[in-house]
Amino acid sequence: MSSLKVMVIDDSKTIRRTAETLLQREGFEVVTAVDGFEALSKITEANPNIIFIDIMMPRLDGYQTCALIKNSERYKNTPVIMLSSKDGLFDRAKGQIVGANEYLTKPFSKDELVDAIRKHVKS
């Protein structure tokens, strides 16, 4: 499990740093991006095993980013976990429509992140 590469996309520096620190302590390699555009440029180089995406971001939001990833032949099977401070039914449904594998509500815990990785990434 520890050789897995995790991508965290969030416009909040605090969220990126928190997720990065929590996951690195668990032995994961972490790549971060501030928004969907940066993520799309980094994804081919990083080739992550799983991607965590914030929904509310400038330029390219999490739903649009997830849809682009899932429409890519190369990354359509890469698990995408949506991160949001909103916990509404509409938000969860929209995440499923664009292909998200799971939906975590902020603030998230280390256990929630690690459980999502274990659940969606086959070692």
Results as ranks from 00 to 15, higher is better:
residue 54 D to C: 09
residue 74 R to V: 02
residue 107 P to C: 05
residue 103 Y to L: 01
residue 111 D to I: 09
residue 13 K to E: 15
residue 88 G to K: 03
residue 13 K to C: 07
residue 69 I to G: 14
residue 12 S to F: 06
residue 52 F to P: 13
residue 64 Q to C: 04
residue 80 V to S: 14
residue 71 N to W: 10
residue 68 L to W: 01
residue 107 P to I: 10
residue 63 Y to N: 08
residue 10 D to M: 03
residue 18 T to Q: 06
residue 73 E to L: 13
residue 4 L to C: 08
residue 57 M to H: 02
residue 27 G to M: 05
residue 8 V to F: 01
residue 21 T to I: 02
residue 79 P to G: 02
residue 102 E to D: 15
residue 70 K to L: 13
residue 95 G to F: 12
residue 108 F to T: 08
residue 115 D to G: 09
residue 57 M to W: 03
residue 40 L to K: 08
residue 95 G to T: 03
residue 80 V to K: 05
residue 81 I to F: 05
residue 82 M to N: 04
residue 53 I to W: 00
residue 115 D to T: 13
residue 123 S to M: 13
residue 9 I to Q: 01
residue 63 Y to R: 01
residue 5 K to T: 07
residue 90 F to Q: 15
residue 3 S to P: 12
residue 107 P to V: 11
residue 102 E to N: 14
residue 14 T to H: 13
residue 76 K to Y: 08
residue 11 D to A: 01
residue 110 K to L: 03
residue 119 K to D: 03
residue 104 L to C: 01
residue 29 E to M: 06
residue 23 L to F: 07
residue 58 P to E: 00
residue 67 A to Q: 11
residue 39 A to H: 09
residue 42 K to E: 13
residue 73 E to G: 09
residue 95 G to H: 11
residue 119 K to H: 00
residue 3 S to G: 12
residue 28 F to M: 04
residue 55 I to V: 10
residue 92 R to V: 13
residue 63 Y to V: 02
residue 68 L to N: 10
residue 44 T to G: 14
residue 83 L to G: 10
residue 15 I to E: 15
residue 73 E to H: 15
residue 123 S to W: 00
residue 102 E to F: 09
residue 38 E to Q: 09
residue 77 N to M: 13
residue 102 E to Q: 09
residue 89 L to T: 12
residue 17 R to V: 12
residue 14 T to P: 01
residue 8 V to D: 04
residue 83 L to C: 12
residue 52 F to E: 14
residue 91 D to S: 13
